[in-house]
């Protein structure tokens, strides 16, 4: 009995009509209460959706969005792109001649805080004894999981191609890094209060001036090509068709992970290059899946509302049963 009383404070008015201690409470939750609850939730959900920033919503990409085509058969591993990248992004770098140091190839490297793109070399060589060199950086996905993941819209897919990062919005949850299917994001763990996510932004400060990204500009073999994604895809497929013996018949990034802005051509099948930065990915972005789950469940707040109505009804029904 004490147990019952102890809880009256919690539910006295609403839930337990007829129980001793709350004789004057009205029966069950009033209809008004329920309407109020529903209205509040609906307003919150719809209002929230209306107010929220529209970052990351797919289907808003420009048909003229830019991309980069990388021909791995041309890349010789000179690492000038790394130098140019560091130079263009204000990252520390030595003199350009230091790029000739091939010893860095002994260990696989990932893009990091001071180096947004890196070139790796395959352990295996082809029939002519030549290894594959591959420059890797943020792939600038068409439907980027990092953008979908970011709860404050710090990651943004620019309609013109690049995936950009705005530290002034970021709260540092690093969910973008969990979401990145290529694992290309880097975090400044060592900055005490203002750590940032570091990534390639496709040199948007240069492209805004009509220049090409720094890595594309410096590539001596023109293994990198900057242009409209549509054009580059066409060029890539034409190149494969022209040299079917040279290239494996696939443009990596055309569909991988829902498509990326960085496209790769290779002589070797990409399946053999997984550890070089070409993971096997489904043709749909993982963001598509979470977004369809998320928006499926919370479309117009329908599911929570139904659940709420169900709970309120249950409450009322069982309360009557108790009261009887």
């Amino acid at each position: 009995m004490k147990a019952l009383e102890a809880d009256q404070a919690l539910v006295s008015r609403a839930g337990t009509p007829g129980t001793p201690g709350s004789p004057e409470t009205p029966a069950g939750p009033s209809r008004r209460d329920f309407v109020r609850l529903t209205a509040t939730l609906a307003a919150l959900t719809i209002g929230g959706q209306a107010l929220a920033s529209d970052h990351g919503k797919p289907g808003k990409l420009s048909p003229d969005r830019m991309a980069v085509l990388v021909d791995l058969t041309r890349c010789v591993g000179c690492r000038r792109c790394e130098w140019a990248c560091a130079d263009a992004n204000g990252n520390p770098h030595g003199v350009i001649a230091e790029c000739d140091d091939q010893s860095v190839f002994t260990a696989r490297r990932n893009p990091g805080n001071g180096q947004f793109c890196v070139v790796n070399r395959s352990e295996t060589v082809d029939a002519a004894g030549t290894p594959v060199h591959a420059k890797i950086q943020c792939m600038h996905c068409e439907h980027p999981p990092c953008v979908s993941a970011c709860l404050v819209g710090a990651m943004r897919k620019d309609p013109t191609g690049p995936v950009t990062y705005d530290p002034s919005r970021c709260i540092g949850c690093r969910y973008c890094m969990v979401a990145c299917p290529f694992e290309r994001l880097s975090y400044e763990y060592d900055r005490r209060f203002t750590p940032r996510v570091r990534k390639c932004e496709m040199c948007r400060h240069l492209t805004a001036k009509g220049e090409v990204p720094a890595c594309v500009g410096i590539c001596p073999v023109e293994a990198l090509q900057y242009g409209r994604r549509e054009d580059l895809l066409r060029i890539a497929h034409e190149r494969i068709a022209r040299h079917p013996d040279t290239y494996t018949d696939r443009v990596y990034g055309e569909t991988e992970g829902g498509g990326t802005s960085w496209l790769y051509l290779s002589a070797r099948p990409f399946e053999t290059l997984a550890t070089l930065g070409f993971p096997a990915l489904p043709d749909r972005s993982p963001a598509e899946r979470t977004e369809s789950i998320q928006h499926g469940i919370f479309k117009w707040g329908a599911a929570p509302m139904v659940l709420g109505a169900l709970l309120a009804t249950l409450n009322k029904v069982t309360a009557k049963g108790d009261g009887a």
């Binding site: 010789v76 090409v212 590539c219 001596p220 073999v221 023109e222 090509q225 900057y226 242009g227 409209r228 054009d231 580059l232 060029i235 034409e238 190149r239």
Partner: peptide, 13 residues
């Protein structure tokens, strides 16, 4: 930027 025709530098290298 969007033709498959290397420039002189690209051709040489």
């Amino acid at each position: 930027v969007t033709t498959d025709w290397p420039g002189l530098r690209g051709a040489y290298h």
